[in-house]
């Protein structure tokens, strides 16, 4: 018995919710695009405002018979690597290239930059994903341990440990792990990027600072939640301690952790440069280091754009999912109407 009127009714609210979602998402998408554009602009300005000719610098590194001062040859090279013409043309050309997936040509190898980055994206994703999960678990373990620890001074000592994860240089962690677990015990390979075993040591190295950042957010949220009325109530109802910790305290601490995943992406992107070098692993970090060593600004720009894009997309997804994960934020998503309605109800 579906009458046309009913169908319109059924469509009505849905169209409305599409509107609200669009109203909620469009500014966020705009923000994400802005981050990519601004990162590109900042990197472009830095490279071209600072003294030095990129082509000459790259040739000087290559050395040998590649070094030339013949203007005709230099002009040809500039044209090949997209470094010819007025600056604004290079700027716009590079920017619109991003949307075609065209990031230019590597000065060092002559291969397309997007292809070069894509080839090493896999190992880095595996490494970063492993580090993110292990870092999350370490932070979680320390948070629960600190929350349950008695007396207070033991807790104070435990709380001091995770922040060390930021202070320890990644190359030190990596070299100690290699010394102990590769050359000492022979459990894991010291280098390379093949198979799961090769992810473990670099992953742990990268996970320590990740855990430190997670812990900062967790512990603040957990101790906040611990002092909140709903935990008081849960304790008063006579729930077991583990039920209180896992069902009430931790659930409320997870949320802020999700919001900083975008931040972690930035951190991981920087951290892989050192970790992949220590473990001689192929990946985006090592590619970045190699491109700087070869003064290959095209690959470097490409990496900046890719990292900014991943950061922007992750931030966008987290923002969009936030309303789904936390029902309390949904009123904000739906706009001003429900809030004013709620006020009316109250008065």
């Amino acid at each position: 018995m579906t009458s046309p009127a009913q169908r319109v009714d059924a469509m009505g609210p849905r169209r409305g919710s599409v509107g609200t979602v669009a109203r909620f998402l469009l500014p966020k998408i705009g923000q994400a695009l802005f981050v990519v554009w601004a990162s590109y602009t900042v990197a472009f300005l830095l490279i071209h405002a600072l003294p030095g000719d990129p082509i000459l610098a790259a040739l000087a590194v290559r050395g040998g018979d590649a070094t030339t001062t013949d203007p005709a040859v230099l002009d040809e090279l500039r044209a090949r690597y997209g470094l010819d013409g007025p600056l604004w043309q290079q700027y716009l050309g590079g920017f619109f290239g991003i949307f075609r997936g065209d990031l230019g040509v590597s000065i060092a190898t002559g291969l397309p930059v997007s292809e070069t980055i894509l080839r090493v994206a896999g190992p880095t994703t595996a490494l970063a994903g492993f580090a993110l999960i292990v870092g999350f678990l370490i932070a979680l373990a320390f948070t629960v341990w600190a929350y349950l620890a008695r007396p207070a001074w033991v807790r104070n000592v435990i709380v001091q440990i995770p922040p060390l994860g930021i202070a320890v240089p990644a190359f030190l962690t990596g070299l100690v792990l290699i010394t102990v677990f590769s050359f000492g015990l022979g459990w894991f390979p010291a280098s390379g990027a093949s198979g799961f075993a090769s992810v473990v040591l670099p992953g742990i190295t990268l996970a320590l600072p990740t855990a430190a950042i997670f812990f900062q957010v967790f512990s603040a949220a957990v101790f906040d939640a611990g002092a909140s009325p709903f935990v008081f109530t849960a304790n008063a109802k006579g729930l077991s301690q583990s039920a209180v910790v896992f069902r009430h305290v931790l659930r409320n601490a997870m949320l802020p952790a999700i919001t900083i995943i975008g931040l972690q992406v930035g951190y991981l992107a920087g951290g892989t440069a050192v970790v992949e070098t220590v473990f001689s692993r192929d990946g985006i970090g090592r590619l970045t280091v190699d491109s700087v060593l070869a003064r290959d600004i095209n690959v470097l720009m490409g990496v900046v754009i890719v990292v900014a894009t991943v950061y922007a997309v992750v931030t966008l997804v987290v923002d969009a999912l936030y309303g789904v994960i936390d029902p309390r934020t949904r009123t904000a998503l739906a706009g001003a109407k429900p809030i004013s309605a709620a006020k009316e109800v109250r008065t």
Binding site: S39, V42, A43, L46, I47, L50, G266, Y267, A269, G270, G271, A273, V274, T288, V289, S291, V292, R295, I297, L300, V303, V304, V307, A308
Partner: peptide, 12 residues
Amino acid sequence: IPGILLALIVVA
């Protein structure tokens, strides 16, 4: 932008 990436751009 990760600090190390900015520093690498300057160094390059």
